[in-house]
Design a protein around this nucleic acid. Structure first.
Lengths: 121, 121
DNA sequence: GCTTGACGACTACGTTCGTAATCGATAACT
DNA sequence: AGTTATCGATTACGAACGTAGTCGTCAAGC
């Protein structure tokens, strides 16, 4: 699975949320957050197409884009890479770390507790 | 806090594990895993120095390098970035994801359970 | 003293990334 | 039919990255 860099990831997010969609539409949804020009978005779409992360179907003389890889799979790859690199492949230290560095709210902990109970069964 | 790229991270790992240390020594420990030449390692050390991630003290006519930033802090930054990007800043879905994608062993879950219990108090 | 070897500094160069302009083709408008 | 707006493709270009060679300097050995 190809690695998807930061900027391209944001494009994917749009299309994971809703697809298929034309370049124009993608650009419109990204603009508020990023300020990217249409040209920039088109470049990113092209690169994602080239690496097979997107598929396109022609609608008239333009393309409609849709993801060709599942968000799940990409997220799995990314988080595995991080856990490998930072925590020697073990997930528990990650959670411990998040907790210690105050990145878990009360609600998070409650939810985790439920989740863990679920997993333990 | 400056972002530390992949290759430089590996250099930091060496020095987080043991420091201070000369360039030669760092290179020797990296070589088995990476195959990098001494020149490459020196470049990375220089870049890390420039961005303030390392400090150096002169020992004779060479440098001894030591980390100038805590591993903890860097790890915090990296994992926060990931959690923000992939899970909208919420840690619970990360754990859920790790679990679902089979990246948590029995032992992990047991450990997590203990950890969560601890956190809940 | 002169050479040799090791050190850090500087330079190099291909690739990826972020951001965008430009171009050739074609559809729409007048 | 001729102009204009739009589409995807191509090209651009600086910064960051990965990897490494070269250079000036100085210490150690002969």
């Amino acid at each position: 699975m190809e690695r998807i860099p930061e900027a391209e990831w944001q494009v994917m997010e749009i299309l994971w949320a809703e697809s298929p969609m034309g370049a124009q539409d993608v650009a419109e949804r990204l603009a508020p957050g990023t300020g990217w020009s249409l040209a920039t978005v088109k470049t990113l779409l092209g690169r994602l197409l080239a690496k097979g992360a997107l598929a396109h179907e022609e609608e008239g003389r333009r393309y409609l884009y849709r993801p060709a890889v599942a968000r799940e799979a990409c997220v799995a790859g990314e988080s595995r890479r991080l856990v490998d690199r930072l925590f020697g492949g073990r997930a528990t230290p990650l959670v411990a770390h998040l907790a210690e560095s105050g990145q878990l709210s009360e609600a998070d902990i409650a939810e985790l507790s439920k989740l863990v109970k679920e997993l333990g069964k």
